[in-house]
């Protein structure tokens, strides 16, 4: 129960933050990626700001033995750089550039812009399901 409340709070703040920052506007995201055209770098400050806050959180995390509502931290490794990582990132960038949406803003837009966001999210889920089906 405590875990669910924390997840709801985190998710809601995340969704509000995406709405505030302009990440839910595909044309603005496209502008951020349009470096050879009408480049709009402002979204870099959104990512930069969030990254700074998180950097502080990582400093706190190092002093904690366990998180507030679980028995231990479950964090991924940081060093493995393989073809899965780079190929996955290349593909994700292509999808991001085509649609102007990444997973967070796509899902966050479901209630606000149900039809286009729904088309994006259903396609994304299909892509995830295809990956699961072909994963070795």
């Amino acid at each position: 129960m405590r875990q669910a409340i924390i997840a709801l709070l985190s998710g809601a703040l995340f969704g509000g933050g995406l709405a505030l920052s302009g990440m839910m506007d595909p044309s603005r995201v496209r502008g951020f990626l349009d470096i050879a055209g009408h480049w709009d770098p402002t979204l870099a400050f959104v990512m930069g700001g969030a990254t700074l806050v998180m950097a502080a959180a990582w400093l706190v995390q190092r002093r904690m033995e366990r998180p507030i509502a679980d028995t231990g931290f479950s964090l991924p490794g940081t060093d493995l750089i393989d073809r899965r990582l780079t190929l996955g990132a290349v593909l994700f960038g292509v999808g991001w550039g085509l649609a102007g949406l990444c997973p967070g803003p796509g899902i966050a837009s479901l209630a606000v812009n149900p039809v286009p966001a729904g088309v994006f999210v259903i396609s994304m889920v299909a892509g995830m399901a295809i990956f699961k089906a072909v994963e070795k």
Binding site: L91, G95, L101, M124, V125, M128
Partner: peptide, 16 residues
């Protein structure tokens, strides 16, 4: 949106 979604879904799972 369909093409971008499909590729995003596959790519984010592959690239974790």
């Amino acid at each position: 949106l369909i093409a971008g979604g499909l590729i995003t879904g596959f790519g984010t799972r592959l690239g974790s």
